[in-house]
Design a protein around this nucleic acid. Structure first.
Length: 204
DNA sequence: GGCCAGGTGTAAA
DNA sequence: TTTACACATGGC
């Protein structure tokens, strides 16, 4: 089923196109985004924040690499799945150091394929890192985004299908700063869902 | 007390 | 190529 409205029309009708934060992921453009992107897998952002607070002194590539697995597990405990996430994050950080040397070099030269070949990095995590840590033209599709589109009659079959739909829909309206607009739209959709949730909760 | 959250990897059909 | 399941804490 396909909606007769464009993505832009849907967002416009919800009055979501004005005064939105730009790169809405906290501390966009830093190594911290990589940690947050993995920690938030099937986990609320609220719990991720607790872990990030614990990790406060270790949120650069260089300082993160000084952590051992046991310490990392204890710090990220609040965001769940720590037995999986700790070794995967450490492995990812070490590979970034080994292959790219610095986080800045990683930002400039990493590819989506490279990220997807790392254990613990699937399509959403890869796109979050590319868009919010590296400022690339990659749209993130998360469960909020899927839910949002589905609730407006846009049901597609795969992650890549949703990604292509969003990227094409947004590119139709903007010619410059595409990465920024991808980030803005993703932010709008997430914020919209949060507002709806609060509304639901208030009605109970 | 049960259900769910800004997914991913693995194994079996 | 699809489907089922493990992974784990914290909020409601």
């Amino acid at each position: 089923m396909k909606s007769s409205y464009t993505l832009y029309q849907i967002l416009d009708s919800l009055n979501l196109l004005k005064d939105r934060p730009s790169y809405w992921w906290p501390n966009a453009g830093t190594f911290e985004v990589i940690v947050g992107a993995v920690l938030t897998q099937n986990t609320t952002w609220h719990n991720v924040e607790r872990s990030l607070d614990n990790l406060h002194p270790y949120l650069t590539l260089e300082t993160f690499l000084t952590l051992n697995e046991a310490h990392l597990k204890s710090y990220i405990r609040p965001s769940g799945f720590y037995n999986q996430k700790a070794p995967r994050l450490l492995m990812l950080a070490h590979k970034i150091k080994e292959v790219f040397g610095t986080f800045e070099s990683f930002q400039k030269t990493v590819t989506r394929e490279w990220l997807l070949s790392q254990k613990g990095v699937g399509p959403e995590t890869a796109d979050s890192i590319l868009c919010y840590a590296c400022f690339r033209e990659e749209m993130v599709v998360d469960s909020y985004t899927k839910r949002f589109l589905e609730s407006h009659g846009i049901i597609l079959s795969s992650y890549d299908a949703y990604k292509a739909y969003l990227e094409e829909g947004i590119k139709k309206h903007f010619k410059k700063n595409i990465s920024l607009h991808f980030a803005r739209f993703h932010g709008m959709i997430v914020e919209y869902n949060k507002q709806m949730k609060q509304k639901d909760h208030a009605l109970k």
